[in-house]
Amino acid sequence: MAEAQLAGDAPARAAEPETPATRELTYLEAISEALREEMRRDETVLCIGEDIGAFGGAFKVTDGFYEEFGAGRVIDAPLAENAIIGTAVGAAIEGLRPVCEMQFADFISCGFDQLVNVAAKLHYRQGVAVPIVVRLPSGGGFSGGPFHSQNPEAWFLQAPGLKVVAPATPADAKGLLVSAIRDPNPVCFLEHKGLYRTVRGEVPEGEHTVPLGKARVAREGSELTVIAYGSSVHLALRAAEELGADIEVIDLRSLCPLDADAVLASVRKTSKVLVAHEATRSCGVGAEVAALIAAEAFEHLDAPVRRLTAPDVPIPFSPPLEREVLPQLDDMKEACDELLRY
């Protein structure tokens, strides 16, 4: 029946313009839209998290959802992150598509066991797919302090069986969240809080997916590649504009699977690489990308691979301390400039 309907629609579709209509949304609105449209499209999709119901979530991502979808699909969970992830695992095994909200990414520590030991390993051990999404409002820059500012992506990358994405733009936030919901695996969806209301961009209306595991060339250039994701993409783009330099910016979008082809293609083109992220340095994504480049593109390099990251310290509270720790625009410009002049 679905096929017949599609066939019937074909002539009308052919007449439509190829580029879908877009309009400007904030990063937060794009996440909210992805979730709402998936819940309308597929009645097995539900949300579970703390204060996401009548209150609409700490950041209002699910504002109005409770009224539209009801308490059965917008589940206000008790303050128990393992219960959120663990019950989502059980519900997913039984055919639902739960989207879990951690109120802050930091709180995944309280649900970590269910995520890395149960959800991540079930398919490998027993062939049981666990289609859950864990939304993780992450990142600092607003004096959230050590427990409301972390970028915990590297924790997940050591747990085989989890996919990890970190969109930088509203369009990717929508497309990656839709893809994450439809993926049959557990997906950690890192949404940077600093981008929620500060970043606006054109977002396709209606059906819009971005494949997991595909990076994006955010800016073309030939002299230096900045490999970034999340908030650092915006820092890199601004630095490139302000420096007026021929810098290529690769937005990884997906940290697992990592788009090695896109990384290596850009390195071979520019021969100089800066890897930038807000998360701490040691054993982070930057280390992994640098190791990949060293192994696969060593002979294309004209300079050492450099990293711009937070140092290995917790995120402090006081504004001057936090600014010292989190990479700033000037840090990005300086790091790019050094490599350009190398």
Binding site: N82, A83, G90, L96
Partner: peptide, 21 residues
Amino acid sequence: VGMVSMLPDMALVATGMALAF
């Protein structure tokens, strides 16, 4: 759904299946 060594993790998984029902 098979157990993991961390106990009692499966109590939450069973609870989640019951939630779906």
